[in-house]
Design a protein around this nucleic acid. Structure first.
Lengths: 259, 259
DNA sequence: CCCTGAATGTCGCAG
DNA sequence: CTGCGACGTTCAGGG
């Protein structure tokens, strides 16, 4: 670890830890004043500013400014590295092969240069995903509509995978799109795409239902224009968490809000 | 700055810098072994693992593991903070009001606790955005098709904003959707939505063209099924950069590849 | 505020 | 490897 290092000492530090272009063995943290240039899928350039850089052992790079969650520049896993001294500046390159992308950082001043070992840690247990919702609705279809019989979850069609597919009490085909969060135009359109293909194949008597906690006005209008339906369902995540506590991480489940 | 601090000394350090729940004055970097729980739009929980945490002066939080660009957990700008000692562990809370979201980090061991001042730095100059492409195509419509006359850029309709709108050599209306990267089903569907609304308003004689460097097979099929067109155009970013060097950051421009 | 769509999106999964 | 869609998407722009 180096605190307020000179350019030269930081160079020594990094050169020893990025041998042969390989990523560091642990997580590398560098804070300092630098200019950055990125060339790749897009291209950016910044004048000198204070940045905080993380380089991970999988070869990902994050260059952060003092605001926002998103890095100013970054590199996905797999990058290779070069370190150099030039014009009394420390140069750090990160390159990626496919697509070809480079980040070039020129540090004129450094305030931190740190390397720490980091184990992978235990896996992330998440609840409340759309996958959990599909599971819930498939196992308890009455939560959607009395008499609905789901045939498949994630029916793969030429038009893409439908979230739920089945038959209503009157024997009509039903295509269902489930959203965890508020639905917008994109989700309405997605349902429309599935239903249109199904109507072409099976005839006009195919229903399409978008199930979500909320829908935007324009998205609702679009559904109505195409004879599709919106079903408001709010999810209660707490039941899911309770269930997971008891039965382990794989046992995802949810309940409807207020059930 | 604290290196390998005790839990108690790290608590002192953080409590003094997160007064009244406010974010730190600079960027705070904490490395250590911790458990994390998140409750909000979703819910996650991790067992103990080595993490690297950044807390920014705008109240954003990033909790990184040793892999990938995306944080394991995070908080967007605006979070408020609490620090506490409990069971010989350091607790760091970050809360957000709307939507209500909390992250709770319980450190059992710390290896770094650092605060650094960071200025905002100079603005980011970016080239190669979709906005630049629209500019190029509007100013040089012959790159799309001989005789095409663009009327508007970003025509706002009830169905949303169209990238380009105009008239072809035969006087037919043309709706154009421009993509910087490969187009998929979502982009085809988006164009379909615009064109369908326009056909409803103006009659069937409306063309829709998706302009992109590449398109997926299914997306192309979907276009054809709805009488829409795909136009392959690859962008050359280098011309843009050259132009920007000369005329400053606001002067975004692009050229077609190989032009 | 909400709504909408871009993004160097990233990530994971399935074919 | 590509295609496809979810994501606690984040973010900026407009009404």
């Amino acid at each position: 670890m180096l605190l307020e290092p000179t350019i030269a000492s930081a160079y020594e530090f990094l050169a020893a830890r990025l041998k042969g272009g390989q990523p560091p063995a642990g997580v590398l943290a560098i804070a300092g004043r630098c200019r950055v240039e990125y060339q790749g899928r897009s291209a950016t350039k910044t004048d000198a500013g204070d940045r905080f850089v993380l380089v991970k052992p999988d070869g990902s790079v994050l260059l952060h400014g003092p605001r926002s969650v998103k890095p100013i520049n970054w590199q996905p896993p797999g990058a290779k590295f070069d370190v150099a001294l030039q014009n009394e500046q420390l140069l750090l390159f990160a390159r990626r092969a496919k697509p070809v992308e480079i980040i070039e950082m020129r540090f004129e001043k450094l305030s931190l240069c740190w390397l720490g070992e980091m184990d992978a840690g235990a896996g992330l247990q998440m609840s409340g995903s759309e996958f959990d919702l599909r599971d819930l609705l498939r196992s308890r279809p009455e939560l959607l509509e009395v008499g609905f019989k789901p045939w498949e979850r994630e029916r793969i069609t030429d038009q893409g995978p439908m979230d739920l597919y089945g038959e209503d009490a009157q024997g009509r085909r039903v295509v269902i799109e489930v959203k965890r969060v508020a639905a917008g135009l994109a989700e309405s359109t997605q349902l429309w795409r599935y239903v249109e293909a199904e109507r072409r194949r099976r005839g006009l008597d195919v229903r399409g239902i978008l199930v979500a906690p909320r829908i935007s006005p324009r998205a609702l209008q679009m559904l109505q224009e195409h004879g599709l339906e919106f079903l408001e369902r709010r999810w209660d995540d707490s039941a899911s968490r309770a269930a997971r506590e008891k039965s382990g991480p794989k046992q995802g489940s949810l309940a409807l809000f207020g059930e």
